Simulated assay, not measured.
Amino acid sequence: MTNGRTIAVLGGGTGAGATTLVVALAMRAHAAGRRVTAVDADPCGGGLDVAFGIETEPGVRWEDLLGSDGPLDGERLAERLPEHHDGPTVLSFGRQWCAVPEELFERTWTGLQQAQELLLIDVGRQALASGMTERVDEVVLVARGTATGLAAAGATAQQLQRAPRLVVRGAGRSIAREAATALDTELAAVLPTDQRLAADTERGIPPGSRGRSAYVGACDVLLRDLLLPEEVAA
């Protein structure tokens, strides 16, 4: 079986919106009929399952995989992961902090790649330091469209061993293009501000659930034209 496509998404500084984008892209990919799993690689991020509104759903979290050895059956694991009632499966940290050994992450990742069409990894600073972003198909760097947000994205990009694709949130396209030029990287998308996202999250409604919004429309274009380029070429 051909391995699924793996996309790492990381934020340029605090509050960039990387987790929100991971959730939205996962929801939109699932809505398009794709087998997709969102993977939490940030033990200090509060839990990706919370962002999906499924923190009370039963299923395997990272702490349940600690102590396992040998290859992991991705199909079986995907079946045991919590999932949104109309969304993708999610491998998240629970409410207790735990350290996931790099070899466990890689075994889990390899198994899921063989079972799913798309893995979206919410990359935290720990994963960034481990060099994880060097081993994925694409790296998407999310930046707030402010002076400090773009400066933080620049500092983050300097830690990467490859050029990321830049997504700028809440800025005009001209500013976003200037930022991409300054970072010597490709501008993948400009995401509009959506005031409903924060309110939806508080109510357990994951980003990307609403079929009609400028933010969702931008995510659909990003998913089609950037994250799944082999299908665009076809």
Score class of each variant (00 low, 15 high):
G154A: 08
E83H: 14
E75T: 13
C98S: 07
T56H: 14
L21C: 03
V9G: 07
V139G: 00
V232T: 13
Q195N: 12
P207Q: 11
W109K: 09
D42Q: 00
A99S: 12
D200H: 12
A176G: 10
A8V: 13
R61E: 00
R177V: 11
A41D: 09
E186S: 14
V139S: 00
A38V: 06
W109Q: 14
E134D: 15
A214M: 05
G4A: 08
Q96H: 11
G204W: 04
C219Q: 01
P58T: 01
G33Q: 06
M27N: 05
T2P: 15
G12C: 02
V232F: 12
E83P: 01
A129N: 11
V39Q: 04
G47K: 00
A29L: 10
R169I: 09
T37A: 13
T185Y: 07
A147V: 15
R80W: 02
L72V: 15
A199I: 12
A8H: 13
G211I: 02
G172E: 13
D194P: 08
L77F: 03
P101W: 11
G145K: 02
D40A: 08
Q195G: 11
H30L: 02
Q113M: 13
A179L: 04
E79L: 14
L197V: 15
P88Y: 04
H84S: 12
R224I: 00
V190E: 08
G131M: 03
L222H: 06
E178K: 13
H85A: 14
